[in-house]
Every structure is written in structure tokens, then in C-alpha cells.
Nucleic acid binder design. Structure first.
Length: 274
DNA sequence: AAGTACCTCAACCGCAACCCG
DNA sequence: CCGGGTTGCGGTTGAGGTACT
């Protein structure tokens, strides 16, 4: 015996809801305190030729009061990115942190917008690590080159940062793109690349940004930029604070930071499309 | 202007968890 | 505890809209 269907599909309307159906459902819900005691039975009671699940979805995702439609704010972006990094695709949990947003909204937004940015990492680098640094891609209007525009390379070409080195300083590394140079060296723990804890979004021991090296000690830098040390670093960018906030956090959290150079090129680099 | 590709998002599907007799 | 009904959730689809050629 197969699954018992939740409704009689032959006698149920499917597809987009009409304004009349919306009004019927809204009216029913409003006269019942905005809650359904039984969604399966609701269509019959309300006079709708719809599946109960469809009614529930329509109400929760669209008709319910205080639903927020329209574009997501930067703050919401960062909430989604942060929580996705922490808990994965638990959309209902993520949506619960943003009043007025539904899990469906968040999921759609992630799938159409944020996922591309989240996965935007240099293919020359090892991105298998779950480690994540939080850098605001859109700081001062900078945008990443898209994979469509620059297939396979230079995912970070417009990011005003070319390398972050973590470990003995200076770290031997290919010269980064001259227009996007910035280097952060974490310091001088000689011969101990992995002496700091392996960083992970699940164990942000050292900073909320989880810079670090991986367990096997082979990854000696966290880098991005098209000329980053070939294959030796990894980068998994997420969303987070502005560049200045990031720098402040790093200065605050890492007493062994030995050098931070924020380049003039930051101000000179042109936003995408400019 | 027409055709095509791409994007968005409402809606559907199926599964697992939960509830209750 | 068990089993059937219901709810909640995440993955996926596809119609309609928009951008591009």
C-alpha cells in the first residue's frame, strides 16, 4: 500500500491562487484567529477547492499578516550567510531570525542570489576546508567578478584584498595583483603553521572570522586574488563586516598580527561596471 | 521586433517529525 | 507502544517576467 494522499488531487485546483481564493482564505483565517486547527479539513470548511497543504503554504508564505515582501537588506544578507555557515540549509531556523521573512523566501533568496556569492571562491585554491573568513564583498561598492564574466579565474579580481598570510612572516607567496594589494600577516610562530587551532566555522576559537590553517599543516596561507600562491592556500569567503570592521577585529583579536597594509589601491580600484 | 537565455519566486512534492487516540 | 493522520520542512519545478542578442 502506497502513501495516502493528503487530498483528492482530481478534485483540487492547482497552480497560482486567484485574488478571490486569497480573499476566501484570508477571510476564513481572520475569523478563526489566524490559526488553523486542521489544515486538511480547512479547504472544505472555507469553501476552497484546494489542497490543505496548499492553503497552509499560501497563508504562511503570502497572506499571513506582517509578511515582509521585497528585497533583502544587507543586514539580512549577513544574517543568512552567517547562519548558513553555522547550521546549513535549515531555512525555517534562519527565517525565524528575521521577522516577516518566510523560510521559502529565505530559501529562494539563497538559491538565486547568495549561493553564487557564497560559492565564489578561487578554483585554484583548496576550498574543501570548512573554514570561513568573513569579508564584505560589497564594501564601498566593490563587487566580485562573476564566474560568467571571468570563467574559472579571478573570482576575487575586484576584491580590494589580495592576500592574507597566516604564519611565519613573511610568507613566500606569488606577488598579488598590483591593483588589489593588501596583505595581512599573522605572525611569527616559527615552524608551527598549525600551532594555532585549525579554524572552522564550527570552532571559531581565535576570532569570529576563523582565519587559520588546516590540520594537515600544508596550507600555509589564507589567500585570495588571482596571483595568490598557487594551490597553497584556501579561501572560503562569506559575508560579514566591512573591511574596516574586519581590520579592527583582527587587530583586536590577534595580538600577534605583525603587519596589515591596506593599500591605496582600495580607493583606486574601480567597482565592477564602472 | 523577434527569438532566446536567464532569472525569480510561488507552488508543488515527498519525507520525516510530531501528535493523539 | 503503535499506527494513522497531520504538520513542517527542504528540495525542486516551471510559469512568467526580464535581459540580452
Amino acid at each position: 500500500m502506497g502513501r495516502v494522499p493528503c487530498c483528492d488531487k482530481a478534485n483540487v485546483k492547482r497552480g497560482p491562487w486567484s485574488p478571490e481564493e486569497d480573499a476566501t482564505l484570508r477571510s476564513y483565517m481572520e475569523t478563526h484567529g489566524g490559526a488553523a486547527d486542521n489544515w486538511i479539513a480547512l479547504p472544505k470548511k472555507a469553501g476552497l477547492r484546494r489542497c490543505g497543504k496548499s492553503c497552509r503554504l499560501r497563508w504562511l508564505n503570502y497572506l499571513r499578516p506582517k509578511i515582509k515582501h521585497g528585497s533583502f537588506t544587507e543586514e539580512e544578507d549577513s544574517i543568512i550567510m552567517r547562519l548558513y555557515n553555522e547550521i546549513g540549509s535549515r531555512w525555517s531556523v534562519i527565517a525565524s531570525q528575521m521577522p516577516g521573512r518566510t523560510d521559502n523566501d529565505v530559501k529562494n533568496y539563497w538559491n538565486t542570489k547568495l549561493k553564487k556569492r557564497h560559492s565564489c571562491s578561487n578554483p585554484n585554491l583548496d576550498t574543501t576546508s570548512s573554514s570561513t573568513s568573513m569579508i564584505d564583498y560589497n564594501y564601498q561598492g566593490f563587487q566580485l567578478a562573476t564566474s560568467e564574466a571571468r570563467p574559472g579565474l579571478a573570482m576575487f579580481s575586484n576584491l580590494p584584498m589580495a592576500s592574507i598570510n597566516y604564519g611565519p612572516s613573511p610568507v613566500a607567496q606569488a606577488a598579488p595583483s598590483p591593483n588589489n594589494v593588501s596583505t595581512i600577516n599573522f605572525g611569527a610562530v616559527a615552524n608551527s603553521w598549525a600551532s594555532r587551532e585549525s579554524s572552522s566555522i564550527n570552532s571559531p576559537v581565535n576570532s569570529p572570522y576563523s582565519f587559520g590553517v588546516t590540520e594537515n599543516s600544508r596550507f600555509t596561507s589564507v589567500s585570495c586574488g588571482e596571483n595568490a600562491a598557487g594551490g597553497h592556500g584556501w579561501m572560503d569567503l562569506g559575508f560579514g563586516p566591512s573591511w574596516n570592521d574586519l581590520i579592527n577585529e583582527l587587530l583586536f583579536d590577534h595580538e600577534e598580527v605583525t603587519e596589515i597594509s591596506a593599500p591605496n589601491a582600495m580607493a583606486e580600484a574601480k567597482p565592477k561596471g564602472a
